[in-house]
């Protein structure tokens, strides 16, 4: 499917989606509550068939926290990049995509570990890299740790 058709299709499913400028991928900013609907459609519909989630990234843009999903279809060879953002730095929360792509299991645990973004419906949301009793989320921009970090 070429990118124009894909854009139409995604806008049909989620009219609130905003397309963003990006040279490499078709990028959409999705409202967090529509994430589940869109990803389910992307995965399940035969003509979209996004069966491979190749990257899931947690990002701290300074004021907003968010997650970037990179999806591609192994059969139809088209890819898309989805973004969700939230202002809520205390208890950021998005829907999980683990039930669609099992890759997301570890990725989401990592994002929870390093950014403190909670994923509703994730089967086993524990810290994956740091100890269970670690305080704070180290990849956030405002993370400070005077004991462990030596600044250059």
């Amino acid at each position: 499917m070429d990118s124009e058709k894909l854009t139409d299709k995604i806008l049909e499913i989620v009219p609130e989606a905003q397309q963003e400028e990006n040279k490499q991928f078709l990028t959409f900013l999705i409202p967090p509550d529509k994430l589940k609907t869109l990803t389910t459609h992307l995965k399940e519909e035969k003509e979209l068939d996004f069966d491979y989630l190749f990257c899931l990234t947690g990002v701290d843009w300074g004021t907003e926290l968010g997650v970037v999903y990179h999806l591609t279809s192994t059969s139809l060879n088209h890819s898309v990049e989805l973004k969700v953002k939230t202002d809520n730095r205390e208890t950021p929360e998005f829907d999980t995509v683990t039930d669609l792509w099992m890759t997301a299991d570890f990725f989401e645990r990592e994002v929870w570990d390093l950014f403190g973004i909670r994923f509703t419906g994730h089967p086993d949301l524990r810290r994956i890299l740091l100890e269970e009793d670690w305080v704070g989320y180290p990849m956030r921009k405002d993370y400070t740790d005077e004991v462990n970090i030596v600044e250059l």
Partner: peptide
């Protein structure tokens, strides 16, 4: 990994 990291024993 001496500088700028949070999880390493120096």
């Amino acid at each position: 990994f001496f500088y700028n990291t949070y999880h390493v024993i120096r």
